[in-house]
Amino acid sequence: MTPVEPITGPRARHPLEERSVCQGPQSLIEIDRLSLYYVDKPAFQDVTLSINKGCITALVGPSGCGKTSFLTCLNRLTDLIAGCRVSGRIMIDDLDVMAPDTDVIQLRRRIGMIFQKPNPFPLTIRRNLVFPLREHGLRDRGQIAQTIETTLRDVGLWDEVKDRLDSPALALSGGQQQRLCIARALALLPEVLLMDEPCSALDPLSSGVVEDLIVSLRSRYTILIVTHNLTQARRIADHAALFWVQNGAGRLIEVGTAKQIFEEPRDPLTAAYVSGMRG
């Protein structure tokens, strides 16, 4: 497998404009017959899916069909939920995510996650970024300062907050908070970003800013995004996967390129959902 980029080493940066990665599809994540149960109630069942490196994959579908649960499996946040049982296999490169001896801490560093509601810690803006870096072993002050600046620039927040890095993060607006959360995830040099409806708690303007940000991250990161906003999914995604509730459990109905899903859906459910939303 490719070794994880050590966080303390020189900070390699992929050029932002490198769009080619998604053109020659190369699979990064392989999900095989994944199911998840809360106690005895299935959240989703038998999902088999492969995620291409450097692409944005949108997960769409009605509420309650297990999209969010699906995301939390990928970085094993499911471990935090009592009574939650997962079966199946997830391979990222050749790392078996569900294997009991997998180092969860390191896994979660490789896979950043953005939540629906922005959740900066009740610390200062700076501390929000410094604290996770330091916990992951980055001690050099110069490097920390450098990382803060580059990640904040990446999310377009630098000019807005550079003069008040030491004010509370919770004083930022919702959109700024969400971008700070993205910066916080990016600072750890992840390969994959999981985004759980990152725009749905924001006003339209901030939502647009965050959406542009996500597009700009394409190809540098492999992105999985859950969204209810079909037009948004269509605008930004390279691939799309439709989830639907069947027999009381979420299932993967159809997966393909965004173009195919939105313009020539094969499954009638997909067609109905996509057109229903459009009309």
Binding site: N75, L77, R108, M113, K117, N119, L123, E135
Partner: peptide, 23 residues
């Protein structure tokens, strides 16, 4: 959400407690 957010950043339990829960 703080706890989930911190866990998603790959922080150890003690780091979460010290850095997020205490403040």
């Amino acid at each position: 959400q703080y706890l989930r957010g911190a866990a998603a950043l790959g922080l150890t339990r003690w780091a979460i407690i010290r850095g997020v829960v205490f403040p």
